[in-house]
Computed example of a mutant assay.
Amino acid sequence: MEKKNLFGLCPYVTSQKVLTGKWSMYIMYLLTDGPIRFNELQRKMPEEMTHTTLSRQLKKLEEEGLIERIEYQQIPPKVEYKLSDIGEKFRKVLKELEIWGNEYIQYLNDKE
C-alpha cells in the first residue's frame, strides 16, 4: 500500500509540519505584541533555549512564511522579527490554545 504525502492537502498534517519546532508556537505568541529584537526575544524564552536553537527556529518560521525578519541598515546592525500576514492569522489559534491550555492546567490541578 502506497503512503500518501498529505502536506498541502490535509489541514492538520500541513499545520503540524509547519509548526514542527519545539518552541514555534511560543515564539509566535511572543511576536503577537509586535516586532521584537533577537536578544529581547531570547530573554523571554525559557532558560534552556540556546542562541543557536532560537536562531534555527526563527529561520524555520521565516522559511515557512509565518514570520518576517526586518533588517535595518545601521551601525550597529538592528534586526527585528514580526508575524507575517499569514502568521497574524495564527492569533486566533493561539487564543484558543491559551483557553484550552488553561483548562488543561486546571484539570491537572484538580487531579492532585
Rank of each mutant, 00 (worst) to 15 (best):
M1W: 06
E2P: 13
E2A: 08
E2F: 04
K4F: 00
N5P: 00
L6K: 04
L9F: 05
L9S: 10
P11T: 05
P11G: 08
Y12V: 14
Y12F: 14
Y12P: 00
Y12M: 14
V13F: 11
V13D: 02
V13G: 01
V13M: 09
V13H: 05
T14F: 02
T14K: 04
T14S: 15
Q16D: 12
Q16E: 14
K17Y: 13
T20A: 13
G21K: 07
K22E: 12
K22D: 05
W23M: 05
Y26K: 04
I27W: 09
M28A: 01
L31C: 08
T32H: 02
D33K: 14
D33V: 08
G34L: 11
G34Y: 11
G34E: 11
P35S: 14
R37K: 15
R37S: 15
F38V: 03
L41F: 03
K44Y: 05
M45K: 02
H51E: 13
R56S: 07
L58M: 14
K59W: 04
K59Q: 13
K60N: 10
E62Q: 15
E63Q: 14
E63A: 12
E63P: 00
G65H: 10
G65M: 09
I70G: 01
I70S: 04
I70L: 14
E71R: 14
Q73F: 06
Q74N: 06
P76S: 02
P77T: 01
K78R: 13
E80Y: 12
Y81C: 08
K82Y: 00
K82D: 07
L83D: 02
S84Q: 07
G87K: 11
V93Q: 07
V93E: 10
L94F: 06
L94I: 14
K95W: 05
L97F: 11
L97R: 01
I99E: 08
Y104A: 02
I105E: 08
L108T: 02
L108Y: 02
D110Q: 11
D110Y: 04
K111Q: 15
K111H: 10
